[in-house]
């Protein structure tokens, strides 16, 4: 068996690292927050100090505490939205792609409509339909955001399923007598994973910004703490004009960092899941040590080879282990396939 290996590039590692910090604070944020985020008894308008790491607001609240407490709601809403959107897009996209025909036509139309609808307007309308008490419920907000964010994923999944459905290996799986559902899930499914994962990451990213915007506009209750309501209060009190940068910097930076981490992870998903891009199953460092190009050149199939000869031209996809490429019994000269001329 091969070792489990975290995805190789530094980008992805940074992405995972950042995201895990935010996830940690989602869990422990409210407990480690130094003060009650709604407590207004501090000196107002303090710039960052050891007492108040991110300063205090005009109302005399601790910004750091608000940020830590608000992390939970923002991320929970976003992940709920992401998961629900992906589930909807799997159902709609896979069905449209696999069943085809009239079903596909109807579902595709449906997808197209949701893609072109102005999402924010729809959100505002739908949110206002809920009773006041429900509007703060992360599940409610998450589902509503998901409702406007699933269409892109569904479109991509449909296209991917369509292209996979008639691939020979799907047919081959039927030939050996595999059951239909196993063919769909065990053969087509894994090939959809990169698309699924990146669509999940994309929707979460979308949900972070949309839920923040909703709160910022005051469309969701402003009495709970999340990064959107923080910005709402900051702008309501003219923080920007008053030069209270610390009040804005916290939530803005946090949103930007979450976004960055998700984008970085997205970079790595393809490489991690698509074995073709995992050249020789070597990490970057090992590849470098073996004198190989760090990433597969576009359009070149990585090839397993004998341990590279020192001084030979740099080749992609070498195998450092003792494993030796068996040359074709009938091949006349096993000409080396090379990455670079």
């Amino acid at each position: 068996m091969r070792r489990f290996r975290l995805p190789g590039t530094w980008k992805v590692r940074v992405g995972y690292f950042l995201l895990s910090i935010f996830i940690l604070f989602t869990v422990i944020g409210p407990w480690v927050a130094p003060y009650d985020p709604s407590y207004t008894g501090f000196t107002p308008d303090l710039s960052p100090s050891s007492q108040h790491l991110l300063g205090t607001t005009l109302l005399g609240q601790d910004v750091m505490s608000q940020l830590l407490v608000g992390c939970r709601e923002t991320l929970v809403v976003s992940f709920v939205a992401g998961v629900i959107a992906v589930v909807i897009s799997i159902i709609v996209g896979l069905t449209a792609g696999y069943v085809g025909g009239k079903t596909d036509e109807v579902l595709s139309l449906f997808i197209a409509v949701f893609l072109t609808l102005p999402g924010l307007v729809l959100l505002i309308v739908i949110i206002s339909l809920f009773p006041q008490g429900q509007q703060a419920n992360p599940l409610v907000i998450g589902s509503v955001v998901a409702l406007t964010g699933w269409a892109w994923g569904a479109k991509v999944l449909r296209a991917q399923t369509l292209s996979l459905r008639n691939r020979d290996f799907v047919e081959a799986s039927r030939i050996i007598g595999e059951r239909r559902w196993r063919t769909i899930f065990a053969e087509i499914g894994p090939n959809l994973l990169p698309v699924l994962a990146s669509s999940l990451v994309g929707t979460v990213l979308y949900a972070v910004s949309v839920s923040t915007v909703l709160a910022f506009l005051g469309l969701t209750p402003i009495t709970t703490w999340n990064w959107g309501t923080m910005l709402y209060w900051a702008f309501a009190n003219n923080a920007a004009l008053a030069g209270e940068w610390w009040w804005l910097a916290g939530p803005c930076l946090a949103i930007a960092l979450v976004g960055t981490s998700l984008a970085l992870i997205n970079f790595g998903i393809d490489e991690y899941i698509n074995p073709r891009l995992r050249v020789g199953n070597l990490s970057n460092r090992e590849r470098k040590r073996a004198g190989l190009s760090r990433r597969p050149k576009l359009g070149f199939t990585p090839v397993h080879r004998v341990t590279p000869v020192i001084g030979a031209p740099v080749m992609a996809g070498a195998q450092t282990g003792p494993e030796v490429l068996a040359t074709e019994a009938t091949a006349s000269t096993p000409a080396p396939r090379e990455d670079h001329p």
Partner: peptide, 12 residues
């Protein structure tokens, strides 16, 4: 099947 490159699941 005709095409060995296509008839074996690439992710397995």
């Amino acid at each position: 099947l005709q095409d060995p490159f296509a008839s074996i699941n690439p992710v397995r």
